[in-house]
Design a protein around this nucleic acid. Structure first.
Lengths: 139, 139
DNA sequence: TTAAATATTTTAATAATTAAAATATTTATT
DNA sequence: AATAAATATTTTAATTATTAAAATATTTAA
């Protein structure tokens, strides 16, 4: 591995490291008063704009096993943030939905940001996603 | 929470989710044949361009406890990828450095990418970092 | 009616982390 | 010089989040 490539490795490592750091900081600023894990917060957000999700849907979204998804729901249910109801039409299926308390929790997460701030964040995140897609096309 | 803000939450959730997905995919493509965790790979990369790191330095970089950093080193040492040597000048300090095998492992990670690919990736990552910094300034 | 497939939960095991304790060394104080 | 305090790393115990596998209940297919 020549010096030019060494430099590339060094740069790439540094950028990746900084990005991870800032991404974590961003998550923290979003969930600054949350003691929930990132994935649990993500799930609350996801449920905010889905009427409900099945456990297998949750598992698929998060690329986890059904057991892990169940465990996530256990935690949120214990906190009164979600409820689980068996579907009448197919009693194998469990609907997972936000409770009133869960709705309020999501509301609280975003109450601290102005509409302008949100727009800026969304716009930046969109560009970040596009850049990752560019990387995807490159490799 | 009004409809406009609902939409913002929805968009933000979706972007965050996609970014997490793509960032994971990126890590996977970088470490596609690695059975090491992300942090272990990161540490290998970091050691590639540092002569050596102390355990506390590793803990600081990764925002972990010294115990966790020790554990990371245990794993890499067990695999023959790093070595630990007490500093003569201060025998409390352990130098952690890549072995020859570790160097080769890092080399292998990047052997599969061309210089052009690396340049594109680095450039995109730099922009991603700048965008995260913009978000940081916004919040 | 029986067998196979499916959804979720439970159980057991594993990996990665923290908090706290332990060990060794260095630095500061007496 | 001796003692106390600080520091670096490791070890131990506990916790959290995940997987694999097993269990339970239900639906679908034969």
């Amino acid at each position: 591995m020549d010096n030019k490539k060494d430099q590339s490795v060094r740069q790439l490592t540094e950028e990746m490291f900084q990005i991870q750091l800032k991404a974590n900081q961003f998550m923290k600023s979003l969930t600054r008063e949350e003691e929930l894990s990132d994935n649990l917060v993500f799930l609350l957000l996801k449920l905010k704009w889905s009427e409900f999700l099945k456990v297998t849907e949750i598992a698929e979204f998060f690329l986890l096993t059904p057991g892990a998804a169940t465990n996530m729901c256990d935690k949120l249910e214990r906190l009164g943030l979600v409820e689980r109801i068996r579907l009448k039409e197919d009693r194998r299926v469990v609907r997972v939905a936000l409770t009133k308390k869960g709705e309020e929790r999501v509301h609280d997460i975003f109450a601290k940001f102005s509409a302008e701030q949100l727009e800026t964040v969304i716009s930046s995140l969109t560009q970040i996603r596009l850049l990752f897609e560019k990387i995807e096309d490159t490799l």
